[in-house]
Design a binder for these strands. Structure first.
Length: 781
DNA sequence: CAGCTATGCGCC
DNA sequence: AAAGGGCGCATAGCTG
């Protein structure tokens, strides 16, 4: 059977198909317009029915379609008796608050797998088809599953869909998607079916795999129930099978004990918090947004006009360029490709190539030297443009400073408002980053500008509520001190000292007071400020894996000096150097590093040798007795020779020459040194430990009964900060409790003292309030 | 048309 | 020897 047979635009109801999200938005419109135009949807459905019947019809006997209350009740009984079930939902789209629940699949081992149609409609009449259980009954039955182990894949989505569709909130005990991240955050396969195929079926072909090609979520609802069931009832079953596979891995591998702890006690407990976060959303001030729109569009137009006015200085050259563009070459897949730049009229200020032509070809600005490649750079990045000190470059910078704000935030955010409650409900991917951090999307609420004071003010507290922002002060540095276990560093925090000043004091040999930015009388101390800044950038540099040159640039000193400063810090705090060394060693010997709580970040390439040597083909010196397909090993001496030469050659050209030498000797050298990225190792531990801590806080905040009673709800977690709100009248009790729970959440394992600042406002970055005798009072500036 | 990469930039 | 860690998203421009 050829794959081509299945390449029919069809349907997808799979929430985990994140890649389809963007598509579905535009395609939904396309479908809506073609729907009335006639036959295409009927054809599609007929084709799908036939396809599913042909390939999945054989599973009809193993599939139970539940359309009456008694059958559902009996099946739930079986789930309860078994103590475990897998569950999966089918919907009309990817937004649980907007899209509809179409059907539910449930599976419990030893029984048939099931499909419960909820909201199928006739593609002819558009009416709901008969013999579907009501949301009430399904909700009532699902509620009986409380306390039973539950497997899901992307639990947050299914829980929210079922809340919206049946008013019953399930508790997931095993999210196979999160388990997959814990077991291997580098896993490239993200979706359930391919994961099941890869690990449970071990790559064997799977008759269900064609369903990945279904790509229109709106069609599923219109399929005949039998067709939908044949397709959908498979999912809860493979969810359970894949979860079983994962449970077995966790059970049999001793070195996954800590990761299992993280999975069960951090990740799985976070699910509930994320469900609430996404359901809650955040209030948005549309009126204020309109004001900003006017203001910023006017500014943007002004900046663009200013740019074009400056371009007029070169109008003759620009005209000439349009007729005779200067040819350029660029590398495409390693090959040099010639191209010319076509200038729009007027020049498109948003086009990088057009700006390059304008600045470097037309205005003849000498290119800067790229620090990294040491070559001429025709970049139009902010960093480069600033150095040019050119009016055109400045005009572009001014335009850009507004264009991102306008397109990504001011214009985009209001489009994200949910029509029912007027709030923005983004998605939070709780294991979005490989380090364990959250990420946010659709829209991303973790990158709302903070430098610009206008944008965040569009986010407001619910009427009658106040907004609170609590942040862990110096979370990552404290994580570093904790991981280093250095008494001196920890003591600095215990005494409430300015940490970087203390580091500078010990490392550079000055009194603590001489390393502070301000003197006791409030005047600035330039020397103290510089020392503190140096210590700070060394510590941050260690966290970010920065080299001396990069630090030197930031501090404004020579590379030599930067190296000396780093040595001073390492000498003053040997624990830091030791932590770095141990982390590298851990990565090199185990292939992964761990956080304070045992989360892993794997770096498999660290286990490889720097170089591998093999003969390209039969070398002259082959032993004739050893000919039968046995790989001839390159002698140790030869390998040593090349390894030594490569050790002293970091220039790309020199290295290429060495590889060429080896090739002429019939030896192929595989270079793994490029895959070994030491810059990520320390950071993975620090950032990951901080992420663990923040998640523990979210768990505690979310489950705290008192906070619940007081109407406290989280809005946006931003790595080391949590934005939340509560009814104004409860502020006096909530605010200190908020800070207390945040500070205590990490528990005894984290011995560095933790403190949290809570800021109280009515809108994000708005006027601050403080508590005075249990009342909120506006803070004076 | 959708899908991809490159470039650039917002946040912690 | 040197190396800026972790995200998501907008736009341009090319490709199938």
């Amino acid at each position: 059977m050829s794959k081509g047979l299945f390449e029919i635009p069809g349907l997808s109801t799979k929430e985990q198909d994140l890649a389809l999200l963007k598509k579905s938005k535009t395609r939904a419109k396309a479908t809506a317009t073609t729907k009335s135009s006639g036959g295409s949807i009927v054809n599609k459905i007929n084709t799908l029915v036939a396809m599913v019947e042909t390939h999945l019809g054989q599973f009809a006997d193993e599939t139970l379609i539940i359309q009456d209350e008694q059958t559902l009740h009996d099946y739930i009984d079986k789930c309860i008796a078994n103590g475990i079930y897998g569950i999966d939902t089918e919907t009309t789209g990817l937004d649980p608050l907007v899209d509809e629940l179409v059907g539910v699949g449930i599976y419990t081992p030893g029984e048939k797998t099931t499909y419960i149609p909820v909201n199928h409609i006739s593609y002819v009449t558009g009416q709901k088809v008969k013999n579907q259980l009501s949301a009430d009954i399904i909700g009532k039955e699902l509620a009986r599953l409380e306390g039973i182990d539950c497997d899901m894949f992307n639990a947050v989505f299914d829980i929210r869909v079922l809340m919206h569709g049946t008013s019953t909130r399930l508790k997931c005990t095993w999210d196979a998607s999160l388990a997959s991240r814990c077991l291997n955050e580098n896993e490239p396969v993200k979706k359930l079916k391919p994961l099941h195929k890869k690990y449970v079926l071990r790559g064997e072909d799977d008759v269900f795999s064609f369903s990945e090609l279904f790509d229109n979520p709106k069609i599923f609802q219109k399929l005949p129930i039998r067709t939908a069931a044949l397709y959908a009832a498979h999912d809860p079953k493979i969810t359970w099978e894949y979860a079983e596979y994962q449970r077995n891995i966790f059970k049999t591998k001793e070195n996954l004990k800590d990761v299992y702890w993280v999975f069960k006690n951090i990740e799985m407990l976070c699910v509930d918090a994320v469900v609430d976060l996404e359901n809650t959303g955040v209030a948005f001030d549309l009126q204020y947004n309109e004001e900003l729109k006017k203001k910023y569009h006017a500014l943007l137009d002004e900046k663009e006009a200013n740019f074009h006015k400056l371009c007029e200085m070169y109008s003759a050259e620009i005209e000439d360029y349009r007729v005779n563009p200067i040819p350029h070459t660029k590398k495409v897949k390693g090959k040099d490709v010639k191209y010319t730049i076509t200038l729009d009229n007027p020049i498109n200020i948003q086009s990088v190539p057009q700006l390059q032509a304008l600045l470097y070809d037309i205005a003849k600005i000498p290119p800067t030297i790229d620090k990294k490649t040491k070559k001429e750079s025709f970049s139009t990045s902010e960093e480069v443009l600033q150095k040019l000190k050119n009016p055109l470059a400045d005009a572009i910078l001014e335009y850009r400073s507004f264009s991102t704000l306008v397109s990504t935030f001011i214009d985009k955010l209001p489009e994200c408002i949910n029509k029912d409650d007027g709030r923005i409900h983004c998605k939070f991917n709780q294991y979005g980053a490989d380090t364990g951090r959250f990420s946010s999307s659709d829209p991303n609420l973790q990158n709302i500008p903070s430098h610009n004071k206008d944008i965040r003010k569009m986010f407001v507290a619910t009427p009658g509520y106040i907004m609170m922002s609590a942040d862990y002060s110096q979370q990552e540095v404290k994580g570093m001190a904790q991981m280093c276990g250095d008494e001196g560093m920890i003591e600095a925090f215990r005494q409430g000292k300015d940490f970087y000043a203390e580091i500078a004091s010990v490392a550079f040999g000055y009194p603590y007071e001489e390393c502070l930015e301000f003197r006791p009388d409030g005047t600035t101390n330039p020397d103290g400020k510089a020392r503190r800044a140096q210590a700070k950038s060394i510590l941050l540099g260690i966290n970010y894996g920065r080299g001396a040159a990069s630090i030197a640039e930031q501090v404004g000193c020579t590379k030599k000096e930067a190296e000396r400063i780093k040595d001073d810090v390492f000498r003053g705090f040997p624990a830091i150097a030791e932590f770095e060394r141990q982390s590298f060693e851990m990565a090199e010997t185990l292939g992964y590093v761990t956080t304070l709580w045992g989360r892993k970040r794997r770096f498999p390439s660290m286990l490889l040798p720097d170089y591998e040597f093999e003969y390209i083909e039969s070398p002259d010196n082959l032993d004739p007795l050893d000919m039968d397909d046995v790989e001839q090993e390159v002698p140790e001496k030869v390998m040593q020779k090349y390894t030594n030469r490569l050790k002293n050659a970091w220039d790309a050209k020199k290295r290429a020459a060495i590889f060429a030498d080896a090739k002429s000797e019939g030896i192929k050298i595989i270079d793994h040194t490029r895959d070994k990225d030491y810059t990520k190792i320390v950071n993975a531990r620090i950032q990951g430990t901080a992420a663990d801590m923040s998640k523990l806080a979210m768990i505690e905040l979310n489950k705290n009964e008192r906070l619940k009673e007081l109407g406290f709800r989280m809005l946006i977690p931003i790595h080391d900060e949590i934005l939340a709100e509560c009814p104004e009248e409860n502020a006096a009790e909530v605010i200190p409790l908020f800070a207390k729970i945040m500070s205590e959440a990490p528990g005894e394992r984290f011995i560095v003292p933790i403190s949290c600042d809570v800021e109280v406002t009515h809108r994000w970055y708005g006027k601050k309030y403080k508590l005075e005798n249990g009342k909120l009072v506006e803070e004076k500036e």
